[in-house]
Amino acid sequence: MNNRLEEYLIEKGLFITAISSILIILLIITFIFIEGFPAIESYGVLNFVFGSTWAPLKGEFGVLTMIVGTLGITFLALALAVPLSLLCAIFMAEIAPSSMRRILKPVIETLAAIPSVVYGFFGLIVLVPLMREQFGGTGFSMLTASVILMVMILPTIISVSEDALRSIPYEYKEASLALGATQWQTIKNVIFPAAIPGVITGIILGMGRAIGETLAVIMVAGNVTQFPSSVLDPVRALTSNIAIEMGYATGMHYNALFGTAIVLFFMIIFLLVLANYFHYKKKVVIGGGYL
């Protein structure tokens, strides 16, 4: 009897814990929608999302420049980070001797633990002047932000991809080598393709971090609400918009910042669904076989 009571309490306890974390998230989302909706409604959904003028004093709230800014920074950061991290993960998982790996792995994971303000500060002091000297302009740009973000998402992608590569059964590697394949052929044709689902997970996680990163981006991106004509132009991200203006926003301006959060929310949901679609639904096709 006592045992059954204990089971019952534990079961319910776990249920309540699980449900409460979901409730908290739902509560936050509800709050954001309640606060943000008036601005979107009064300015019009299409005007809000596709308007290119952000002038709170004149009552204009178009966030398209910032959507472009967020997407530009994120995908440029991914374009820089993905090749680098995949090669690094392959090196660590397949080529580096175990003594080297024992040093590399914790060092790379430490990179993920550095607070973003430190990265931002480094970007401001070192990278911005460097960009100014190399490419002209102010040095505050989409590219600068992407380079900082690249460094910030490298550890995530490397770490998850490396785990994925190492979890590929040793039998595959053995089979390939026994057929007379070289080490590189084995990595390229067998190990890496089999690890692709895990690698994609790593890229999704990196992308999530890049979209959400605020502070480091504010410090180096320039934060101008204009369409960039090149990667060297300053841009403002959606997250930056909220952080920069929330200190003094009132009235409709305040609601419009929550509206920005709603747009960000839908963008992230869209990208996650898209990524999951490639991850699960399509599976990953390797020369006609399914993983």
Binding site: E171, Y172, E174, L179, G180, Q185
Partner: peptide
């Protein structure tokens, strides 16, 4: 090997693998 260890590829690609490399 002891445990059958085909690659997670198609039947054709499994047999063709050695030729390809």
């Amino acid at each position: 090997f002891q445990k059958p260890n085909p690659f997670p590829k198609s039947i054709l690609d499994n047999v063709a693998y050695g030729l390809k490399v």
